[in-house]
């Protein structure tokens, strides 16, 4: 078990409202959550429960209407490469090769050429795409694209990884594989992960802690700790039971 003590992410009484034509929509209401350094926390909930909004607030792409989000003791006021973000739709830069996509953040940080190339090469090896370094995103499968998306976020060595349903667009087989790879990377690198999904099994397989959200407006409905060691056997009784319990929980609230 990892050593969890100082809070890497603190979400304190955060609300988010959108002004629309039909009036005000509340996406999140007084949400509070604390994620420890090195912890893998998954926010689980049905679509429309505000979990993506929560992640966007933590990444700094949007600001809360109320409440504060602090990361490593500092108030979040905008995006920062120290909070690497991985998106469901990959959002790779189509005009850049795999290598250039992975290098994007390093270039912006002014990392010297030689060091940058080493780092990119290292990342390409981690995600197993060294042979595709000079391919353009259009030539890649969904799973490969998301590996690049992950490597691009990891290249600048962020303390925190924010993942918005990252494996939601790939097939079952690839999803499992990516989940395993993510766990390996997470174990090797000591990152704090805030992961968003609607896939209960995925949440149980990956997380230290699962935050169940219900909508609308979104708020925390329950928090479940999963202490089992990884890799987790998905056919073990505890796993099946946990998935079932969470399923019932979400169902009773929608």
């Amino acid at each position: 078990m990892r050593y969890h003590n100082d809070a890497a992410i603190t979400i304190d009484g955060v609300s988010k409202q959108y002004e629309g034509e039909g009036g005000t929509t509340t996406a999140l209401r007084e949400m509070s959550l604390s994620v420890s350094s090195g912890e893998f926390v998954t926010v689980l909930g049905p679509s429309g429960c505000g979990k993506t909004t929560l992640l966007r607030l933590v990444s700094g792409l949007e600001s809360p209407t109320d409440g504060d989000i602090t990361v490593a003791g500092k108030l979040v006021q905008g995006p920062d490469p120290n909070r690497g973000t991985v998106f469901q739709a990959y959002h790779l830069f189509p005009w850049l090769t795999v290598r250039e996509n992975v290098a994007f953040g390093l270039v912006e940080q002014g990392v010297p050429d030689a060091e940058r190339q080493d780092r990119v090469q290292e990342m390409l090896e981690v995600i197993g795409l060294s042979n595709f370094a000079d391919a353009y995103p259009k030539e890649l499968s969904g799973g490969m694209k998301q590996r690049v998306g992950l490597a691009r976020a990891l290249a600048v060595d962020p303390d925190i990884l924010l993942m918005d349903e990252p494996f939601g667009s790939v097939d079952m087989q690839t999803r499992r594989q990516l989940q395993d790879e993510l766990i390996d990377i997470w174990r090797d690198t000591d990152k704090t992960v805030l992961f968003v999904t609607h896939d209960i099994e995925e949440a149980v397989a990956l997380s230290d802690r699962i935050v169940v959200m219900s909508g609308t407006p979104g708020c925390v409905q329950a928090t479940v700790s999963v202490a089992e060691s990884r890799p987790r056997n998905r056919s073990a009784q505890w796993f099946v039971d946990q998935v079932e319990t969470l399923f019932e929980r979400i169902k009773s609230n929608t």
């Binding site: 995006p79 973000t85 739709a89 953040g105």
Partner: peptide, 18 residues
Amino acid sequence: SRDLIEVATTLGVDTNRR
């Protein structure tokens, strides 16, 4: 693409010029 602009900001692009 607004999405790609967002991605760039999460990767450390913080000026209009960049």
